[in-house]
Design a protein around this nucleic acid. Structure first.
Lengths: 203, 203
DNA sequence: GACTTTATGGTACAAATGTTCTGTGAGAAG
DNA sequence: CTTCTCACAGAACATTTGTACCATAAAGTC
């Protein structure tokens, strides 16, 4: 990714902020005013530079169609020590992207009920993000899947297959694995992510 | 939230899909063509209905400025049993929202290093989403915070305060709590969420 | 100095676009 | 039946808006 000049960076930062707040891109004359300019031409020029450098894109001739190509999300500022006190904030620019790369169309979420996956650090109340499987044959052993056995109900388990025998293992010693023919198992999705929300105002 | 007529629902669904894919709202004539109409007036009418019912909003007179008011995200299809096989998919319409309500401007993420929060089900490599604290005095005991002690480094710990004494407790018996005067503790954020990504193609 | 890139101001134009108005018709509610 | 709401077509208009062109100037590069 090419570097930006100062004014290009200013416009780019403002653009991202505007789109985040308003859910749509501004018009060129809006950017003109925001940058303190009195002509649309400089904005046009900066936008073309931003496009040439791969930061943005838009549909030519159409109003307010600028797209941010770099993933949007919240910045991962650095690493935090959960062991001993070691690391401080850095100026890392890694981004946690919720919009495009992590989630795909078709993904869905499930709220976890129960504690059978507790050893996999998935708790009751957590939200798991699942992705439908196109090719059940390509499923790797050890992946966590949402599977329905015998039309009964959907459970979250480790998936293990040996020949035509499938074992669904919970991550909790108090529960027993389910062993059944592959025919009986309908894999509804593989685990791609997990979200746990905290309420900061709790006592 | 008021109910929608069939054509209104169609337009609304198409709108959400379009905005999700293109990062900007379509024009009225685009919607017209997508709905198979030959006049912009019906779209105008449907949009006003959607606005009156609280689903969308836009800036009058400006092109492509429609905003979706209902949170966007991926649908939470239901609950999944992690204990025993109990629940099936439902037609729940709850949404896991990554764009507006869960995350706020100013939020940032940190990648967790170490295992001191393992008993809180936060693992090495997880990404925690933190929110800056406006009023450190209002911090409740028991919340998980990113705190810097004595200018040393930032750690993720449970926050407990008693008078002017602050205790930062790890969620791992192998580590000891840090006890220090409140003066020495700089709380950089409270935990509002946690994300763990899985790679479905792993063996 | 000559040349290129970038930044800026000003103006102009065609296309895109939101909006309004008129008229017609279907269906539900009273 | 009357009334109301909603849906659709067609046309027209004013504004917004992307784009192009011309000219000036500052800064860096050769």
């Amino acid at each position: 990714m090419d570097a930006l000049t100062e004014v290009q960076q200013q416009l780019y930062d403002w653009l991202i902020d505007y789109i985040r707040q308003n859910q749509h891109s501004p018009s060129i004359r809006q950017m003109m005013r925001a940058m303190g300019l009195r002509s649309p031409a400089p904005i046009q020029s900066r936008l073309e530079h931003l496009r040439n450098k791969g930061y943005i894109d838009w549909t030519e001739g159409k109003a307010r169609t600028i797209r941010i190509l770099k993933p949007m999300g919240i910045p991962i500022l650095g690493a935090i020590a959960a062991g001993s006190v070691v690391e401080a904030f850095t100026d890392s620019v890694e981004q946690l992207d919720f919009s495009s790369s992590l989630l795909r169309p078709g993904d869905y979420a499930l709220r976890v009920r129960g504690d059978s996956m507790i050893d996999a650090l998935i708790d009751n109340g957590d939200v798991v993000i699942m992705r439908p499987v196109q090719d059940p044959q390509a499923l790797k052993n050890g992946t966590i899947v949402a599977a329905r056995v015998n039309g009964d109900g959907t459970t979250l388990k480790y998936y293990h297959r040996k020949g035509n025998q499938v074992t669904l293992k919970p991550a909790n010693r108090n529960y027993k694995p389910i062993e059944t023919p592959a025919m009986e198992v309908e894999v509804q999705g593989v685990l791609v992510g997990m979200w746990r929300g905290y309420n900061p105002v709790a006592s």
